[in-house]
Design a protein around this nucleic acid. Structure first.
Lengths: 337, 337
DNA sequence: TTGAAAGCGCTAACAT
DNA sequence: ATGTTAGCGCTTTCAA
């Protein structure tokens, strides 16, 4: 069933059918009726592949999301979709794993789908100019930056919180409440990643507050998965945990940490406080509710789209937006002073 | 940059370029080299839109997932993707909201992307023959069935647990442990849905065990969202909860229920036990760890693909697979006997 | 082994 | 208001 068949069945030409389908005004009501009738009766649906081919480019942007199961992204994606639709654009969403390279993937997607721009949700922090050359449309990094890369700042946009400064926030929050021995749970960073930034922030914060930096207080796990966080904390507890508070690099790691400590007889927050990063909704419901640094997901989605469309439509330079996280108080941090 | 440009740059014809790109054997090594070089140098990537247009049909199937934020689906999706890739098919994944109609959406997607089949992840249970007429390729319902519909069973496949029987499992599990006053927390069902089946199962189980069915023990919430479950349980607690155990229709509702009870001074499992359905990973880490009816997500993904490909490739009739859930013991159910 | 040319289904000039 | 037709970028006969 093609537009040709519809034309034949309705006794008109293909262009008339095309006009009806695309809601062009200059079609007589009678003919429009007839065409629509045939369309309905035969469940005709235009082949958008052909449609896209013939159009110079689609009003669509690609979203490349790192990790299907990360609960941090869905709310951002929903917001992005809403903003794009409002602007008359559609969203082409793909998930990739840590093994795939988001830049290569983006380049292919961009060509294949004739996209006008890309939003990266998560990614490496060390893009080189050579690598990004394959990308011929504007892009924006959402929830990470190109901190270690060499791509000129005007060439792309980003929306992220300051991953170094945010560690000052959480460490400071604990400090104000009397904590002096503050641990850190985060994935190790063989590749330059967000973990490395947060680690730097942690070290910087301790130094600034003149707190001791102890190696045994930094708990490295092999990924952001709960199981890995659980194991790392469990092991640390068995060796003997020497801190009064722990910072978890993500909420899910925080959940896992609480369980591990619980099993080892360390009560949160009585024996050890915990604060984590992300602001997932679930942290409101856990026992104890987790005190967390909330990333403004809605804003991040919104602003990513705004910056991207600005680059696409107005050909403007890339901009770099630092969003402000806020600490949402739960029940996992105890006041010591 | 099109195949034409590559041809010009390499000093060959477009068909030769096409052959190289598609790894046809009959191209001289020298020319192949040259073409590949041009491709690399100019970052040429074939336009798959055009590619798909010219090909009779793609080796791809669509996955239509109801709800972006439901953590139950991602593991299933990953499994589906893996199985499809193994079979040489690619996956075309779309998320829709509760407002959209999955059948209409599927029909459009099928045509637009020239798909060979559809997997529905979640959906209504009352498809009519007329509604499904727009779909011209095989489909499989994963994690739900067409219980209330009138589509002949051989016309589609499904992979699901028995939503009625599973309630017998969980209610029976509580019964064996001495519980006699068993409540239920689930979304209300204005439309025919999985909730209705589970409600029926609950009622049936109570009857079979000769337990009293009390209206005030059925806590209806307006959706599967945590907040709604939380409110429903909170309200019920304030009125006075008269059961020794609660069944939550999903793990996330279970998490919310525990929090609501906790705030109202009802301890889980000491004052009230809780069992939920899904088997999400997070239930292993919550305090208390939640006893849950684990749906075999991996199997469900795998079998969905198997049945679908069987229909596509072998033109076989639809099959209906009932998968067996298992109860994973947590810390949320107390033994009373 | 290579090239010329006919479509895939659709849209958008251009013509009537 | 409606029809004719030239592509969009690619694959695939068919000829050479």
């Amino acid at each position: 069933m093609t537009i040709k068949d519809v034309a034949r069945l309705a006794g008109v030409s293909v262009s008339t059918v095309s006009r009806v389908l695309n809601k062009h005004p200059d079609v007589s009501p009678l003919i429009r009726e007839k065409v629509l009738e045939v369309v309905k009766e035969h469940h005709f649906i235009p082949n958008s592949t052909a449609r896209n081919l013939v159009r110079p480019r689609r009003d669509a942007v690609g979203i490349i999301c790192l990790g299907r199961s990360n609960p941090f992204y869905p709310p951002i994606i929903s917001q992005i979709e809403e903003m794009l639709n409002k602007a008359g654009y559609s969203m082409c969403l793909r998930f990739i794993t840590l093994e795939e390279d988001e830049l290569t993937y983006a380049a292919e997607l961009e060509r294949a789908e004739r996209l006008q721009g890309i939003v990266f949700l998560g990614g490496r922090s060390d893009y080189t100019v050579a690598e990004t050359a394959a990308l011929t449309v504007p892009y924006v990094c959402c929830s990470f930056t190109n901190y270690f890369g060499d791509v000129p700042r005007e060439r792309y946009s980003s929306v992220t919180m300051d991953d170094v400064a945010c560690m000052h926030d959480v460490v400071g929050y604990l400090y104000e409440r009397g904590h002096r021995e503050i641990g850190l749970l985060l994935p190790s960073f063989p590749n330059r990643s967000i973990s490395e930034l947060r680690y730097r922030g942690y070290c910087g914060a301790l130094k600034k507050l003149e707190l001791p930096m102890r190696e045994e207080n930094v708990l490295f796990c092999s990924s952001f998965r709960e199981e890995d966080g659980y194991q790392a904390v469990k092991k640390a507890c068995q060796k003997g945990l020497n801190c009064t508070a722990l910072v978890a690099a993500s909420d899910m790691l925080g959940v896992a940490a609480i369980r591990a400590m619980h099993e080892e007889g360390v009560r949160v927050p009585d024996d050890c406080s915990l604060i984590s990063i992300d602001g997932l909704n679930i942290t409101r419901y856990t026992l104890p509710a987790i005190t967390t640094l909330v990333q403004p997901q809605k804003t991040m989605g919104e602003e990513s789209v705004r910056l991207l469309l600005d680059m696409i439509i107005n050909k403007s330079d890339g901009q770099h937006l630092i969003v402000t996280p806020t600490i949402r108080q739960g029940e996992s941090v105890q006041r010591l002073n």
